[in-house]
Amino acid sequence: MHVIAFASQKGGSGKTTLAGHIAVEAERQGAGPVALIDTDPQGSLSQWWNAREAERPFFARASSAGLEADLATLKDGGVRLVIIDTPPAITATIGHVIGLADLVVIPTRPSPHDLRAAGATVRLCEEVGKPLVFAVNGASPRARITTEAVIALSQHGPVAPSILHQRIDFASSMIDGRTVMEISSQTKSPEEVGELWRFLDDRLKGRETAPLATASFLTGSHGARDLRGAA
């Protein structure tokens, strides 16, 4: 069983949206059973799942036994992938979750504030020796700042080859517990989610793909910044 944690110090990074979408896409691509765990006190992922009509992915409510015991129970029950959403702050909870994860996904919007905030999560992953990847989320098409963000992030870890763009279908699908793959979206959003899942699946299985190809987005080195110094 593999465990993916979605972690970001900054609220509004799209962490919960990506966690739900990747869980559904993993099920769609035969990687299930998939279980979701929500460790964010706001409970946004729990609320999204409660609005779903589909039974999969499963939702695992935290028990008094603790996260380690809950993960062991899920593994014994045949779950193959667990996706954990975390609070939008560097807390003891996030550190604990990262320590139990096989892969940490750091959703980052292409903005200076998000880039600075990512530094704290990167340091936490480094302290416990956990692999991380960045997922650029909420990007504007053809915006120069997206290129600059990818350049900056790539200095500190792999960047997923799928840039998820800001579109209304992501928000509208989450209202009733669905995803862009389930609302017959006519945009490229489902394709972007699928590409992100394939990248994460490769990382989990040790088929490490190269970070975001320079030919696609990295047209120069301008705009790069030190995440650790900025955080």
Rank of each mutant, 00 (worst) to 15 (best):
I106K: 01
V133I: 08
V128Y: 00
A118D: 10
A143M: 08
G157D: 13
S44H: 05
G157L: 05
I94R: 15
A118L: 13
D169I: 07
T17K: 05
S221E: 15
P33T: 08
A23Y: 07
I37P: 00
A230M: 15
E68Q: 15
G11C: 12
A224N: 04
F58W: 03
Q155C: 05
G99R: 02
G30Y: 01
D85S: 02
P57A: 08
G194I: 06
R61D: 15
S154M: 14
A143S: 15
D85G: 03
H222V: 03
A26I: 04
S46R: 12
P190L: 10
Q47Y: 09
F6C: 04
T91A: 04
G138A: 06
D226H: 14
E55N: 04
L124R: 11
W48D: 12
S189T: 12
K188H: 04
G78V: 07
S8M: 11
G20D: 02
R167S: 06
T108F: 02
A171G: 06
R207A: 09
Q166F: 11
T73I: 11
L124W: 01
T16D: 10
P211H: 10
G157Q: 14
A54R: 15
I94M: 15
G95E: 13
I163D: 00
V128G: 09
I168C: 04
S221Q: 14
P41M: 07
A92F: 03
P161D: 13
P131M: 04
D176Q: 12
E208N: 11
E126K: 10
S185L: 03
S44T: 13
G78E: 09
M174I: 07
D102V: 00
I22E: 01
T17I: 07
E25I: 04
E148D: 12
T93K: 09
H165F: 14
M174E: 03
E191R: 14
T16S: 14
P158D: 14
L227H: 05
L71I: 05
R167I: 07
A224I: 01
M1D: 01
G11Q: 14
M174V: 09
S162K: 00
T219L: 11
N137A: 01
F6W: 07
E195D: 13
D226M: 09
H96K: 15
Q42E: 10
D38T: 00
W197A: 02
P158R: 15
V34H: 06
V104I: 02
